[in-house]
């Protein structure tokens, strides 16, 4: 039972190499931190693990089965750095949310998302509000791993703490596995059960 990236290699151009032979495992309920200088492929690794990109070599396994074998909504979801670029600006938030099917019960209340918001467009809520919306969108009933790529770097400290305290509690209750990418060493120290360098 785990999300496993095995000997992953990837490059965006034919000759370019972003990742070479990288392996990483996240177990349910585990919180793994991923640190390292800019340009080392942290975001790329997240994209491979959540199925946005296919590795050139190596494989991504979920409970021993290749990630591609899962149909429907991917059980591995990503939480992006810039929430405003992760939603369709011309769709009302409610429609964006319904696109992915059912929302886990009590989630909207727990994230303080007011029902009135769902009738609005993404440009209206603040950055922190929109990131909370993206969390609600990602945490479907079947989702078991959440990859957070610098998800709170642009937010102020209080909003950051609000979001992480919520995610920690949710992860604990639902045995959600978290991969947390950040440049902030103190944040990783606080959040993670294990920290990997890339």
């Amino acid at each position: 039972m785990s999300l496993e990236g095995k000997h992953l290699s990837f490059g965006y151009r034919r000759k370019g190499k972003v990742l070479e032979g990288v392996s990483l495992t996240v177990a349910p309920g585990e919180r793994v931190g991923l640190a390292g200088p800019s340009g080392q492929g942290k975001t790329t690794l997240c994209k491979l693990l959540s199925g946005y990109e296919r590795p050139r070599r190596g494989e991504v396994l979920l409970d021993g089965r290749p990630l591609q074998a899962y149909r429907g909504l991917c059980p591995v979801q990503m939480l992006w750095q810039h929430p405003e670029t992760a939603v369709d600006p011309l769709m009302k938030l409610g429609d964006t949310l319904r696109e992915g099917g059912q929302v886990a019960e009590g989630l909207l209340e727990a994230l303080h998302i007011q029902p009135a918001w769902l009738n609005r467009y993404p440009a209206e809520p603040s950055g922190g509000g929109l990131q909370r919306f993206c969390i609600a969108r990602a945490l479907r009933p079947g989702v078991r791993y959440l990859l957070c790529d610098e998800s709170t770097a642009m937010l102020d400290l209080i909003t950051q703490a609000q979001i992480w305290q919520f995610l920690l509690q949710w992860a604990e209750e639902h045995q959600l596995g978290l991969l947390i990418v950040s440049h902030n060493a103190a944040l990783l120290e606080r959040l993670c059960t294990r920290i990997e360098m890339l």
């Binding site: 603040s126 922190g128 209080i158 992480w164 103190a186």
Partner: peptide, 21 residues
Amino acid sequence: RALWNALPQNGFTPIPGTQPG
């Protein structure tokens, strides 16, 4: 004080609510 307490190396405790626009 609330900002300082929200730092991960300090309390990491958020206060409720959001900044008014």
